[in-house]
Computed example of a mutant assay.
Amino acid sequence: MEVRLHDIGEGMSEGEVVQLLVNPGDVVTVDQPLLEVQTDKVTAELPAPIAGKIEDILVSPGDVIEVGSIMVTIAPTEQFQQATESEEHKSRKHHRILAAPFTRKIARENGVDIERVKGTGPAGRVMDEDVINHMKTSVKKPEPIQHKKAERKEESSQPSSKTIPFKGRRKQIAAKMSKSRLTIPHVSHFDEVDVSNVLEMKALLEKRGTSISVAAFYIKAVCIALREFPVFNSELDEKEGVIHLKPFINIGLAADTEEGLIVPVIHQCDQLSVKEIHREMKRLYEAASTNKLLSKEMSGSTFTISNAGPLGSTGATPIINYPEAALMAFHKTKRMPVVGEGDEIVIRSMMNLSMTFDHRIADGALSMQFTNRVMELIEQPALLLMELK
């Protein structure tokens, strides 16, 4: 029985072997985890499709393999399905350590055998701090320098460059961004919006015991505007010669994680209140940071939002999340003097934003109308709270 890598993500083409969970000669049961594989979106355990004995393992940790590649071979027999393990087999059976994928990554990249790390988490789970502490207590003293054997480098010698792996999620992101950039004629425009009223409303709600992030207000404004300008919630099918206006609004949230950029999705976002958007956004970001997002939570977006402001960005020209039609980015907010009513100079909180769209399906004038509507809703947050759905 050949166990091959199948598509465990949305349209994945390859995956990286993270960890082997069995050894050649092991007796396994149906659905017993064989190995961990990481794609550009998820880290998953691949189970045994049958009960039997592991004949051969054809991959190693760190290998990047294509979908369809043979990873493990299993000899299925009644004997192995029913037999109890011998004492010798028990002595070399793989011990399953409880640890999150990111914790395993820390151990792997620092050459730490995670089975030797004592876990302090629930049920003995190995935490990030456990790996770091293990590294501190097991550092070996450096070998004494053998000056007699050392050779002095010539003055003209150049230091060698360092390398980092270009594979797994990083490679998948590169492929998708390249396809988007080469396929879609991108156009971006910029504006600034007064978010003073949103910040005041957020502070007022917090005094009353309700915490809602400002980003939830921005997302709700985008949803309302997308209902009024559905062409930006669409997908172009050049082969059929049609633009599909999506009947639902699923907002993708560009999220920066240790493993790279991923886009969790708030499904049916236009049907949620500002408070509900905040809760779902918080849940998805937490799942993304711990690599626990489900495949369905990272697929089906119709419009993507990038909230780059907390990182300090004042402007950018983001690449559209193919095959979507547009993307809006919210940038840094700063207090600055503006001209108010009666030409009076007042201090307001102003935020930069950028709108990037597919020039095949819309022109600049329509994009500016859409952006102006989003800005109008952000500047009048009471309108957003009135929208129950």
Rank of each mutant, 00 (worst) to 15 (best):
D31L: 13
V346W: 08
F217V: 05
P381Q: 14
K141L: 15
V139F: 13
F370L: 05
K140R: 13
T290P: 09
A175R: 00
K148G: 08
P323Y: 00
G241W: 13
S156F: 15
A48V: 03
E78P: 01
T183E: 15
H244N: 12
T333P: 09
E192Y: 09
K207S: 10
K246M: 15
P122E: 15
L35F: 13
D191H: 07
K275P: 02
D256M: 09
L199D: 02
P49N: 11
S367G: 06
I345L: 11
Y218L: 14
E45I: 06
K292H: 12
F232P: 02
A150W: 13
I8V: 15
A255P: 04
V231F: 14
V72S: 11
Q19R: 02
A99E: 00
K149N: 14
T43F: 13
H134V: 13
V231I: 10
I114G: 06
G241N: 08
E200C: 10
M350I: 04
D113T: 02
E228W: 03
F166N: 07
P24I: 04
M375H: 05
L293S: 10
L34E: 10
K179F: 12
Q19L: 09
T73D: 01
I114D: 11
R208M: 15
V67D: 05
E151D: 03
I224E: 00
A225I: 00
F102P: 01
R104W: 04
P47Y: 13
E88A: 15
A51W: 11
K141D: 13
V3H: 08
R283Y: 10
L384E: 09
K282T: 02
S69T: 05
Q32K: 11
E143V: 13
G209L: 05
M71H: 07
K105V: 00
E238H: 00
F190T: 04
K90T: 02
V198E: 09
T29M: 09
M336Q: 04
S313N: 06
I57P: 04
P264C: 12
D343A: 14
E200G: 10
A254S: 12
N133A: 10
E10N: 01
S367Y: 06
L385K: 03
E228Q: 02
S180T: 08
S273K: 03
A316C: 05
R227W: 01
A216I: 00
Q82D: 15
S156P: 06
D113N: 09
L46Q: 09
A51V: 02
M201I: 06
R92E: 06
V195C: 11
V195M: 06
P61K: 04
V274G: 02
L284P: 01
N352C: 06
L199T: 05
M281I: 00
E387G: 05
F166K: 02
I277G: 03
A174L: 08
V338R: 14
L284H: 06
F166R: 01
K246Y: 15
L182Q: 05
V139S: 11
L199N: 12
L35K: 01
R169L: 15
E324G: 00
H89K: 12
A221L: 07
F166H: 10
A325L: 07
F232C: 12
I8F: 14
E129N: 08
F217G: 07
S301R: 02
V72N: 11
V242Q: 07
V64R: 01
V67C: 09
G364L: 11
P61G: 02
L182V: 11
S91W: 09
V231S: 08
Q146H: 14
I319C: 03
A326T: 07
M127W: 08
A308R: 10
P49S: 12
A150D: 07
